[in-house]
Structures are given as structure tokens and as C-alpha cells.
Simulated assay, not measured.
Amino acid sequence: MIYRWMHLRLTGPLLAFGGIAIDHVGPSRDFPSASMLTGLFANALGWRREETERHQALQDRLVFGALIARQGRVLTDSQNVQLKANDRGWTTRGRPDERAGGTYDSPHRRRRDYLADHDCRIVLRLTPEDEPDIGTLARALDQPARPLFIGRKPCLPSVRLFQGWLNAPTPRAAIGALGLSGRALWPATDAEDEDEGSILDLADLRNWRSGLHGGSRRVIEGEIPGGVE
């Protein structure tokens, strides 16, 4: 069966695809997680973070593959700040975010990794058919309810995110239809694809009801040869 796939391009001066954070260290994967894509779409649709059932239902419906068209370099941002009770933070909602805690005597430290000049392509569809449908997601990316960012608020896209439609039977075939070469990731649902790369258990799911990350999915990582852009 042939399906319609959305083609997304995630690129910009800085991107952050997240990863397993330990203590104050926040790494970035080379490929976006299912939870990150869910958050990107939810932000475009104007959903509130408290709408956990909506987020969970959307994440459960995502079927996608990804290809690195240009590998970025890792840029590490080390942050040290003295937090006071009356400090405010910038938000995409148009009003400052006030802190509820007290003043910290010691510096608050964080380390965050970013990908500089990275270019990642996504092929994506939704199953089962429901609302929002894939056309609604495409329109929301072109006319988002709020400003969009890729992973973290400083990571603004430098091109249109929605790049058009592809027709293909599987995620691997949809990636091939891009006409690009590079390292790719796609769901391990077709036994014929298993010879094309390494099978991994990827921990990139979020339990939106609890607010915690947990759960993994079986994927294949491999090289897509040839291709002309």
C-alpha cells in the first residue's frame, strides 16, 4: 500500500534534538526524538502543555524516518548563573516567566549541547487516521499558533519546515524518495530492511501524562547510498 508522507526539513544555525540527560548535562542526538516532534507539532497547533492526553495520542500515532543531509558539529554551551527570587525568563507566550523559588547562594550550572549547521530531513505520516490529520499538521507548520523552535528556544529554523509530500509504501522507501544520501534512521517494522543497518532500541519516547521520559522503540540506523538533490 502506498501512503502519503510529509517531508520536513529541520535546519538552522543551532538545533537541539535532546538525549538522555544526566544531572546538569543535556546532550543532543543527531536525529530528532518522537517526543521532540510531538512537542514541535503541539506548539504549532497552539496546544497547552497541560493537554497531556492530546500530546500522548499524537506521539502514539507518529510513524517517521529521518536522514542527515548535512552533519553538524557539536557546540557546547556552559551556563553559570546566580539565580534570584525575582528573576524572570523569556517565553514564546509574549510575557515573562517568573520564578517560584528563592535565591540560590551558589551558582546554578547547566551544560547543553547543540548541533551547529545541521540539516536533517524527516518523512512522517500518522496512523490511525484521526484528528489532527497530516494536512492539519502541515498547515500548522506554515501558520503556527506560536513561534517555532527546534528542540530548545534559541534554535530557530532557517527554512520553511514543511517541504512538501512524498508517496511511498514504507518509511525506508520514503527516505529513499528524497533523493539524498546520508545516515538515516527508520522504524524496524519491515524485515527486508534489517540487512541495511543496525537494529537499535531507541529511548526517545515521553510519557506525557506523567511528564517523564520513558519507553523505547525498535529502529534501524544505516547509510542511504547515492542520491541527487
Rank of each mutant, 00 (worst) to 15 (best):
I2Q: 12
Y3T: 11
R4L: 08
R4D: 15
W5T: 00
H7N: 12
L8Q: 01
T11A: 15
L15D: 05
I22W: 08
P27M: 06
P27R: 02
R29T: 10
D30E: 12
F31T: 01
G39M: 08
F41T: 09
A44S: 07
E50F: 08
H55N: 01
H55A: 11
Q56E: 12
L58S: 05
D60F: 03
L62Y: 12
F64H: 09
L67V: 11
L67Q: 02
I68N: 01
A69T: 08
G72P: 04
R73C: 10
L75T: 10
L75S: 11
T76M: 06
Q79I: 03
V81W: 06
Q82H: 14
L83T: 06
N86I: 03
D87L: 02
G89Y: 04
R95I: 10
P96S: 02
E98Y: 09
A100T: 13
G102R: 06
G102T: 10
S106H: 11
R109W: 13
R109D: 01
R110T: 12
R112V: 15
D113T: 01
D113W: 00
Y114M: 02
Y114A: 00
L115T: 00
A116S: 12
R121I: 00
V123S: 07
V123M: 10
V123C: 07
R125H: 12
L126T: 08
L126E: 09
L126I: 03
T127I: 10
E131T: 14
P132K: 05
P132A: 03
D133P: 07
I134Q: 01
T136P: 00
T136Y: 01
L137R: 01
A140D: 05
A140K: 01
A140I: 00
L141S: 07
D142A: 15
A145T: 08
R146A: 12
I150H: 00
C155H: 04
S158C: 13
V159L: 11
R160G: 11
F162G: 03
G164K: 03
A168N: 04
P171Y: 01
A173P: 04
A174N: 08
I175H: 01
G176N: 12
A177K: 13
G179T: 00
G182Y: 08
P187R: 11
P187D: 07
D193L: 09
D195P: 03
E196Q: 15
G197M: 03
G197P: 09
D201S: 13
A203W: 10
L205Y: 05
N207V: 06
R209F: 05
S210N: 06
S210L: 14
G211T: 08
G215P: 04
G215C: 08
R217F: 07
V219K: 02
I220A: 10
G222Y: 07
E223S: 07
V228I: 09
V228H: 09
